[in-house]
Design a binder for these strands. Structure first.
Lengths: 119, 119
DNA sequence: CTCCTGATTAGACGTAAGTCAAGATAGATG
DNA sequence: CATCTATCTTGACTTACGTCTAATCAGGAG
């Protein structure tokens, strides 16, 4: 359950802000795949709920907060897992998810704007 | 040319990191649309080229760096424009693009991870 | 005005992505 | 073992997205 289904390479060696240096083609492919994982409203909100919860969250507490079916939530959680943004563990009947902050830090750095370039 | 084709509301009033507070449904929809704009390798690389260039970039210097047709580049630039990530201006025969750092800052803050939560 | 060049728009096409219902799996309990 | 609950997987369906060619638009030059 906690194995990573997709490539989880360092994503370009983390990381120079795009305002400092342009990405090459390969880095763009890898980077875009992480953005894609957060490019859906349900996934972005799932990520924010998981990330803002200290410790971990049970799927059974996640599903009722959305208007879509259980399988759909399960699908979105899998996408977040494959992107390296969360991990999970089954304990008894329930499955618990927690955030993996490394990728968030990577994206945040990539998008960071030098103070003197703001506005 | 520099009009904004889509809603460019403040995107949730910019901005609390997702590790501090979960997004509500409406904020997630709006936020996901910005991530979607960078969720394509060509757009992410276009954005990084535009952002890393001091001043502005001519479309004529952008297109040759990619293996897709001119109209495709034009389409991707439009998506970035509608997401509020870049703006442009025609001067004579050529069109120039520059970054709008506000949205980058917003995303970067949203994804930022408190130092004590890293790893 | 006419022609040429750079850029965008329109429309068509194929693939990818989100959703659901139905079935499968994991584990607890009797 | 059988049964029940929580979660995930499968397969089908529909819509969204990236790409192209062809056509259009904006400006400069002759």
């Amino acid at each position: 359950m906690s194995r990573q289904e997709l490539s989880l390479e360092p994503v370009g060696g983390c990381c120079v802000p795009i305002m400092d240096a342009a990405l090459d083609s390969a880095a763009a492919v890898e980077g875009a795949s992480v953005f894609k994982a957060l490019a859906d409203p349900i996934r972005l909100r799932l990520m924010s709920i998981i990330a803002s919860t200290a410790g971990e969250v049970c799927v059974c507490d996640l599903t009722p907060q959305f208007d879509v079916s259980g399988p759909t939530i399960s699908h979105h959680l899998k996408v977040l897992r494959e992107a390296g943004l969360v991990d999970c563990e089954r304990r008894g009947t329930w499955v618990y998810y927690w955030p993996l902050p490394e990728r968030l830090t990577w994206m945040s750095t990539l998008l960071s704007v030098p103070a003197d370039a703001r506005h």
